[in-house]
Design a protein around this nucleic acid. Structure first.
Length: 565
RNA sequence: GCUUCCGUAGUUAAAUGGAUAUAACAAGCCCCUCCUAAGGGCUAGUUAUGGGUUCGAUUCCCGUCGGGAGUACCA
């Protein structure tokens, strides 16, 4: 039941609809004040009375019922206390409707039915290893993918491969000069990257020209050049595939930049037809001066296309192929201007779906001693971070729980979870300074804390399984139980807010908040050893619901939950 | 220069325009004869700055200062 709407129905305020009232209703800062509150300030103007008087009058008129136990004025606020049993029963019935009676899982919804969301994320570069700079886009995109699915949307995950550009000519030159097949096979993507780095540091003008020539060879379909390129591509996909598996992300399409090279011309023609394409300094551009932006370059002065050209073609292709309702680009804020330009050009072309294009911008990652630099070797590889976190988890596990079965699996869930959670816990726009100290900290507001809480739930449920359970609706929830009910009730809105703001941290924070509330409940209220069968029934139910919701919340983020740890 | 994002305890951060700004980490001190101490409790400590809008501003608007990013043929 939506309590806000219910309360709004029960208040008869002149000149205001119940819907409007429900919008205003808030939660007081301290539960001792009440469960919900109506700030009367906005009503003051309408009703031409001071807020405190309105609150007072509404309080006097209010007739308590089985759900809303009382309404009390406190200054300009009207505070409502709900019946504890009603609050609990409300949550219990909603939770059970999905989880026990076979409906949608609690927190899921079908509000996205019939709608499609495209999410462009991770988008790796061929022949480059994954560093921590790629973590945010990968786990943010992965989380949004699952969250939108959970809300009933059809979701298309797109890995817009960086597989086009002169760097691949350089790579082929480097391989032809110094590459050894066995070494590359053994060293994999890192060996390929070493060749690339070496080429850049030793490159002469002559070598640069050779690289350009090699790129032309790829373009023109030269067999050897393409064979090498495809080899590097398969090495890359094999390598990132392992990381994607560990991070629990997947894609429905790997259509990268190369995929669009034969799809650019129609879009360019359309730009011409619509009179948007003008020549400037030898290049073909869309002038965006009227919008305070530099021109959007479609074709270079030598006639070659750019990344922007392919992005434009990709947008049209996606609209045509998937007919999306939203198209998200999970890309760092570095590219703010690029996307503003891209979306504006689509709008100028008269496409109304330009409004459905969203740049989900996130903050940048740097190291404690400054920006990362692949060339200077100042780089932290993602697989190293994951491995170290898993090792740390294994070590702690060995200390805490040496007899545990599946230690490897548990360490993987804990270690990988910490890596993902670290990237998803704060607002995405915040910059991140990476440090191993922080990454390896498993205390406090972390996924490990949430997983530990789930393990506690599982453990106590195991102990309570054989004990009798009475009628969980027969007892009145105490403060701790009520707090937990409220926290669990907030799960669905946390998921919705995450989708609305493209902000998975909302779910991550809900997980930590709820785990905190549960741990206090766990300490204060005996669950298996409850004072009565009825109390046990309620607490066991709350524990089951907590475990289920936390598992689901972490699951939406791509984090697994071990039964024991 | 211009555009844009960000400035909250020692640190990292939270807070649909609402009541006494909330956590964690680090520090100090407590709590395992009691469902997992990867836990819980206590102590101490915060909205850069000047205006404005508002009954009410961490939140919205303008300026200043500080930082990040971008600013035509890279991606």
């Amino acid at each position: 039941m939506d309590h806000r709407a219910y309360i709004a129905e029960r208040i008869a305020a002149e000149g205001v609809t119940a819907e409007e009232l429900a919008e205003i209703i808030a939660v007081p800062p301290d539960p001792s004040m009440g469960d919900y509150a109506l700030p009367c300030f906005k009503l003051a103007k309408l009703m031409r009375k001071p807020p405190a008087v309105i609150a007072q009058e509404l309080a006097e008129k209010f007739v308590p019922d089985g759900v809303v136990a009382s309404a009390a004025a406190a200054g300009g606020y009207l505070n409502f206390k709900l019946d504890r049993r009603a609050l609990f029963a409300g949550f219990a019935s909603e939770f059970m409707e999905g989880d026990i009676s076979g409906g949608l899982p609690y927190g899921a919804s079908d509000e996205g039915r019939g709608k499609t969301v495209c999410i462009d994320y991770s988008s790796v570069n061929i022949a480059k290893p994954f560093h921590i700079g790629h973590l945010s886009t990968t786990v943010l995109g992965g989380a949004l993918y699952r969250i939108f699915k959970y809300l009933g949307y059809r979701v298309v995950g797109i890995n817009h491969l960086g597989d086009y550009g002169t760097q691949f000519g350089k790579l082929i030159s480097a391989y032809k000069r110094w590459g050894v097949r066995e070494e590359v096979e053994k060293g994999g993507i890192h060996a390929v990257n070493d060749l690339y780095v070496r080429f850049n540091s030793e490159a002469t003008e002559e070598m640069e020209e050779e690289a350009r020539e090699n790129f032309r060879l790829i373009e023109s379909g030269d067999e050897e050049a393409n064979r090498l390129f495809e080899w590097f591509k398969s090495l890359t996909l094999e390598y990132v595939g392992k990381i994607y598996d560990r991070l629990h992300v997947s894609f429905d399409s790997y259509a990268g930049e190369r995929f669009y090279i034969d799809k650019m011309q129609p879009v360019i023609d359309e730009l011409k037809e619509k009179g948007l394409l003008v020549e400037s300094r030898g290049a073909q551009v869309v002038d965006l001066e009227a919008y305070d932006m530099p021109p959007f370059i479609v074709l270079r002065s030598d006639g070659a296309s750019l990344y922007a050209t392919r992005d434009l073609a990709a947008a049209f292709y996606r609209k045509k192929t998937y007919n999306f309702d939203k198209c998200l680009y999970v890309v760092a804020y570095q590219q703010n201007l690029h996307f503003r330009q891209l979306f504006k050009v689509i709008e100028l072309m008269g496409e109304d779906w330009a409004k459905d294009m969203v740049h989900v911008a996130y903050g940048m990652v740097s190291l404690e001693d400054g920006a990362m630099s692949t060339r200077k070797g100042k780089v932290v590889w993602l697989e190293d971070v994951i491995n170290r976190c898993v090792e740390k988890a294994a070590k702690v596990l060995e200390e805490k729980n040496p007899d545990l079965a599946d230690k490897e699996d548990v360490a993987e869930k804990v270690g990988v979870g910490a890596v993902i959670f670290g990237a998803l816990y704060n607002n995405k726009i915040k910059d991140i300074v990476f440090s191993y100290d922080k990454a390896l900290n498993f205390d406090g507001e972390t996924s490990v804390y949430v997983q530990y809480t789930c393990a506690r739930c599982a453990s106590v449920l195991e102990k309570a399984a054989a004990l009798p359970r009475g009628d969980m609706f027969a007892v009145e929830p105490n403060d701790r139980e009520l707090e937990l009910v409220k926290s669990l009730s907030a799960f669905p809105s946390a998921v919705r807010a995450a989708a609305k703001g493209y902000e998975p941290s909302t779910v991550a924070r809900w997980c930590v908040d709820t785990a905190q509330v549960f741990n206090k409940f766990y300490l204060d209220c005996k669950i298996a050893q409850a004072e009565s069968d009825d109390a046990r029934a309620m607490r066991v139910f709350l524990t089951e619901a907590t475990a289920a919701c936390l598992k689901r919340g972490l699951g939406l983020l791509g984090i697994g939950v071990p039964e024991k740890m």
